[in-house]
Lab assay of single mutants.
Amino acid sequence: HNGKLCKLKGIAPLQLGKCNITGWLLGNPECDSLLPARSWSYIVETPNSENGACYPGDLIDYEELREQLSSVSSLERFEIFPKESSWPNHTFNGVTVSCSHRGKSSFYRNLLWLTKKGDSYPKLTNSYVNNKGKEVLVLWGVHHPSSSDEQQSLYSNGNAYVSVASSNYNRRFTPEIAARPKVRDQHGRMNYYWTLLEPGDTIIFEATGNLIAPWYAFALSRGFESGIITSNASMHECNTKCQTPQGAINSNLPFQNIHPVTIGECPKYVRSTKLRMVTGLRNIPSIQYRGLFGAIAGFIEGGWTGMIDGWYGYHHQNEQGSGYAADQKSTQNAINGITNKVNSVIEKMNTQFTAVGKEFNNLEKRMENLNKKVDDGFLDIWTYNAELLVLLENERTLDFHDLNVKNLYEKVKSQLKNNAKEIGNGCFEFYHKCDNECMESVRNGTYDYPKYSEESKLNREKIDGVKLESMGVYQILAIYSTVASSLVLLVSLGAISFWMCSNGSLQCRICI
Rank of each mutant, 00 (worst) to 15 (best):
L458F: 07
E364W: 08
T305C: 12
Y384C: 10
G494T: 15
E237N: 14
L370A: 08
C242H: 05
S330N: 09
C238S: 05
C242P: 06
L398V: 10
Y312M: 10
N459S: 13
N336M: 03
Y314A: 02
Q475Y: 04
L493M: 00
N283P: 06
M235A: 11
K329P: 09
E347V: 05
C242E: 03
E368L: 06
A325M: 09
I338Q: 03
I496S: 04
L403Q: 04
S251H: 07
E301P: 02
T279K: 07
W499K: 07
D376N: 14
L281D: 06
L363E: 07
F498W: 08
S481F: 07
T262F: 11
T446W: 00
S453T: 09
I423C: 11
F378D: 07
L281F: 04
L468N: 04
S456C: 12
V442T: 07
D376I: 04
N362D: 12
K457R: 08
N362C: 08
I249N: 01
T383Y: 10
N369D: 09
T397A: 11
Q507G: 14
E368W: 04
N459A: 07
R282F: 07
Y289S: 06
E368A: 14
E364A: 07
R460T: 12
S502L: 08
Y452G: 04
N369F: 08
E429A: 05
L379Y: 12
C508Q: 10
L389Y: 03
N232T: 14
N333R: 14
A484T: 15
H432Y: 15
A495N: 01
E359K: 14
E440N: 09
S485A: 12
G247I: 06
N394C: 04
P260R: 14
I263N: 03
M307I: 07
Y384K: 04
C238H: 07
A484D: 00
N336K: 12
F400H: 06
A420N: 02
E301I: 11
L253S: 15
N503I: 05
S344T: 15
W499I: 14
G337H: 12
S272K: 09
D402Y: 10
I335K: 00
A495Q: 11
W304N: 03
G337P: 00
N444I: 15
N362P: 02
V270F: 01
I335G: 04
K411E: 14
L493Y: 14
K413A: 15
I423P: 00
G264N: 04
Q246W: 11
K329N: 03
Y447A: 05
Y314L: 05
A386F: 01
